[in-house]
Write a protein that binds this DNA or RNA. Structure first.
Lengths: 283, 283
DNA sequence: TCAATAGTGTCTTTAAGACACTATGTT
DNA sequence: AACATAGTGTCTTAAAGACACTATTGA
């Protein structure tokens, strides 16, 4: 234990020091959190299909004032002095979606000088995943618009289309420009945040269990594969995928409603305990 | 392009808005950067050896005032209003070590409410790696002490020993307590930062090239293996390691001074271009 | 000469990928 | 009946690990 009675150069012990301490009147940046909220949604059936396909979507809000007025942005807000960064992220998340049961992880902190023309803002971005499909974006107190945007993350471009189809944001990864007549990129550096979030998801899919945070309690293996394919952006062999995923799930005695042959599974959080045992053994 | 002449609810265009904008007098947290600076150092020979072994070390400074007076801490400082987070990290790094040519990456942002008893401080931690072994810590203007600490990162405990052997910090990972009579843990939440940094290194070693940032321009394969072993905390089969590492290096016609059979290699930054080609092919 | 190290060769085990095949449910 | 999908079996290929062996150097 460190000795609280140690005295500093001015002869103060720690308590005296803290009482005498006045934070200087230095200029300070504002600190905010921004949250990328992802979930899945049933894809509109293009052909007659028996099983449903899913799509990835992200929640965006429309700015009502300068700067970037009328631009779409990632939801976020100021960090209160009495709340942790993560707490602030949870609070904002709840304010935007009324959802509480989510996967949440810190993504990155964006703090470039000019990222907000009004003032210096340091923003810590969080990544949230939820399995709920029935989330209605909450209209904010300032009557801001909030919409889900389907994420089409191709190799050449990223395309965001609002669920009603009225708003489209298109970004060309090669030319690094937003390239659609009626589309404008996201506000601030929010495009960077989104791209980093998608990248993080892609990377973490095959060495963590993030995919299951997007899936409901019970799911078919085909649905799980569908999620992996969406996040990885490529097709996966169904036989090989089944072999791998079976290590991570436990089967139920239930079957899917729409296709009775599809068995339902649930995620098994203990699946990697065995692997850890092996790991220790190796050492 | 977004139209700057759009007018908001008050009838302002963007320029008018920005000019009229006064950042509110909300309380704001202080924003700092902390930097974990790692490098290697020749291990003191315990037995007569022909080749030198390396150890990992981290730079710490000794606090001269409350809070955590006389505790060791990770170097860092306030972010100026006109510099990016990363710029601030570079600046602090140079102030502490006079080294500029380093690998630098953002680690995590620590922002819990009580982490600094004086005031609310949000700190973005950075991870720096340098290959230079001859770095003398710069004594700060406030005459603060700075020392390199050898990192012994075992499974049960983390032990930090200053190069002169006078300071020892020992942390028991299982009981989560600092467990040495004369040792006290690091200041603030800096132990968490250090542990996260070591974890990040361990994880990134085998899917990135961070290890080479700790190695000099020319190195033997044994030295490279030594670094991997230190960061991973386990022994590696030399034949298998050689097979893997040879993909990432190019050989020179030079040989080590101390043991003439040891061929010297240099890192080949283009080694993964081929792999990327394959990756695209797969898709 | 001897011990330590650099470096090679090869066998085994494991993981990943490709692909054909059967079975079942839906229309 | 025709078709889409669930689910299985098996072959091939690539990566990872284990380990014995030779060659060279420095003391």
């Amino acid at each position: 234990m460190r000795d609280k009675e140690l005295r500093n150069a001015k002869g103060q012990n720690e308590q005296e020091f803290l009482e005498a301490y006045k934070p200087g009147n230095y200029e300070r940046p504002s600190v905010t959190v921004d949250i990328l909220i992802f979930s899945l949604i049933d894809k509109k059936a293009e052909t007659k299909r028996t099983v449903s396909q899913k799509e990835l979507r992200v929640l965006l809000i429309k700015r009502k004032d300068h700067p970037f007025m009328h631009c779409w942005a990632i939801p976020g807000g100021f960090v209160n002095m009495d709340e942790n960064l993560e707490t602030a992220a949870y609070r904002e998340l709840k304010e935007e979606t009324n959802v509480e049961d989510v996967y949440l992880e810190q993504l990155y902190t964006f703090g470039n000088v000019g990222r907000d023309p009004r003032m210096r803002v340091i923003s810590t971005a969080y990544l949230a995943l939820t399995s709920q499909e029935d989330i209605e974006p909450v209209a904010g107190d300032d009557a801001k618009e909030a919409k889900w945007f389907i994420v089409q993350n191709g190799e050449q471009y990223l395309k965001l289309v609002s669920e009603d189809g009225k708003d489209v944001i298109c970004y060309d990864k090669t030319t690094k420009k937003d390239s659609l007549k009626d589309g404008s990129a996201l506000a601030f550096d929010h495009l960077d945040i989104l791209l980093m979030g998608l990248d993080r998801l892609k990377n973490k899919v095959d060495y963590t269990d993030v995919a299951f945070s997007l899936l409901p309690e019970l799911f078919t293996i085909t649905e799980a594969r569908n999620v992996y394919e969406i996040l990885l952006g490529k097709q996966i062999d169904k036989a090989n995928f089944r072999r791998e995923i079976k290590k991570k799930v436990i089967e139920t005695d239930q079957y899917a409603d729409d296709y009775k042959k599809s068995q339902l599974y649930r995620f098994n959080p203990c699946w990697n305990n065995k692997k850890k045992d092996n790991y220790i053994k190796v050492k």
